[in-house]
Each structure stands twice: as structure tokens, then as C-alpha cells.
Amino acid sequence: MSAMETLDNEIGDLQAKIAILQAHRANLSTILLSQPHLPARLEQRPVQHEGHRRKAAKLVEKQSKRNLENVYRACAGVTAFKVKDPDPYAVDDGNVLGVRIEVAISGRFIETYNVLFNRPDAQYKMMLKIHKHTIPPCIPLQALANKWLPMTRKDVETATEQNLVKFGRSLRKELVSWHMRLEAITKLRSEAGVEDEAARPEEAEEPAAGRVLNAFMSSDDESDEDDEELQRRRNSPVKIMELEADAAGREITLTWTNGRVGIMKVTKDGEVEKAVVKDEDGTRDAALGRKAIGRIEGLVQRLAA
């Protein structure tokens, strides 16, 4: 039994080692292929087989293309590319223009979003229409498209003005600000010392079903005053028990241990714009609500102060 285990462990170790070495090799070959003047040197030096030279040149070309693409993507944030639609019935012979938006948060590229356009109107070749996209529904894509990429109606003679650059710019702004809000909320959670509901590891005994949202008692049989847990909570110092946000990161709900609940509305650029804090008995805590107004980043500190 133990022999089997040790063997399994050894195999696992070896596989991990192989993976590390492979990654290392890939890294080294990338560095080698990215050497400046490599193509020129390949041309000049004699080789045994012409085929090897061609193969090497191909690899170098592939690498330099990738390098160029990555540099543009990393520096510009919004880049365009061409795609061919394989659909034989596609409009405009399947020519598709892709726009790629990179989102970078705190020094890392975390997500790439694509919008693919086609040209449905043979008469107005410059008119673009969104064909496919990977923008999540919490981004107002339709509204942005209505504004910057309006479609010409059939009976109108002149083409409507479209502005792809402004569309890309405003879409990127929406996406980046969305990710920044989510990032700020994750940070708030760790500041408040509450664990993320989604990040918690799956435990076998925990039910798949979550919290019941309408489990409040009707007022006529409210008799749980003697509940120990509630009593204990009331006596301990008040702190934030739960921090929840909607998927768009526009609304934050805070629950304190003493039953106080606060709802904050966040603007797209991360400003807490409106806040309502209510105590357990329903009275509004206006002072705390006023404290919440401001940048999203310092919310927990402001409320604790």
C-alpha cells in the first residue's frame, strides 16, 4: 500500500518536474527566437540542410510577429484584427473586423474582450454592425452601439455617421472601470475581514442552495428576543459581517453584526454616490450614511472611523 503511494508520489513529482522544465524550455526558446539580428545571421551562416534554415526562419518570423502583436496589445489597449467568417452565407464574403480590448488591473492583464463587426450593407461599405462579441451583459453595449454606431435605415439616402474609435474608447472605459470596481470591492472585503462567498472552497457538507432572501418573519410572531446568538452578537463590538455587491459592481450592501444594513450606490468611476444606512429597528442612521459618501477605496475606514 505504502509502496504504491510512494510510487504515485514519485510519478507526481516527476510530472511536476517535467512541466517546469518544459515551461523553462519554452521560455528559453522564446528568448532565443526573439534575439535581434537573428534572421540576418541565419541568412549568412552556412547550414547543412537548407530545410533547417527555412524552418528556423519560419519560427523566427512567427515569434517576431507575436512579439509585435503583443507590444501593440500591451501598449494600445484597443487593437483591431481581421477574421474570416467560415459561414458560406455570411454577409460581405465573411470579412469580419475584430476589435480587441485588454483590461489590465494592478500590473497584470487579466481579461481580453472582443467585439466582431461585419458590413451588412453592400451599398455603404463603411457601415459596421456588431456581429458577435464577448462583452458581459452588465456592460451597456447596446446603448454604446446606438450612440456611436447607429445603423442607417433602408429608406434613408445618406449614410449615418459612425465612429468606431469613440465606440472602442467608451467601451474600454466601461470595461476597465467595471473591473476596477470589482477589484476595489474585493479589497474592501479583505479590509472588512469578511470572506468572499464565491471564493470560499467548496465543502462537501455545505448545501448547494444558498441564502434565502425572504426569510424574514412576519411581525406578529416576533419572539426571538431571547435568541442567544443574537444576544451574543449585540454584546460584542459592532463590525461588518457581510459585504455584498451586484455583478456590475454598482451597488454594495453591508450588513453589520448588530443588524444594521447599509446600501451604497456606486458610480462607474468608483465614487460612492448615495448611501442609506438603517438600524435594525428601521431608523435611519443619517450620520453614517453621510460618512459613506466618497471614494469606494476608503469606504470601510470611513465607516469604522
Binding site: R25, A26, T30, N70
Partner: peptide, 9 residues
């Protein structure tokens, strides 16, 4: 990823 330069794998 925009910073992934590895082409070989």
C-alpha cells in the same frame, strides 16, 4: 495574454 510571448507550445 498580452504578455505571453511563448509561441513554441
Amino acid at each position: 495574454n498580452a504578455l505571453d510571448f511563448i509561441t513554441s507550445q
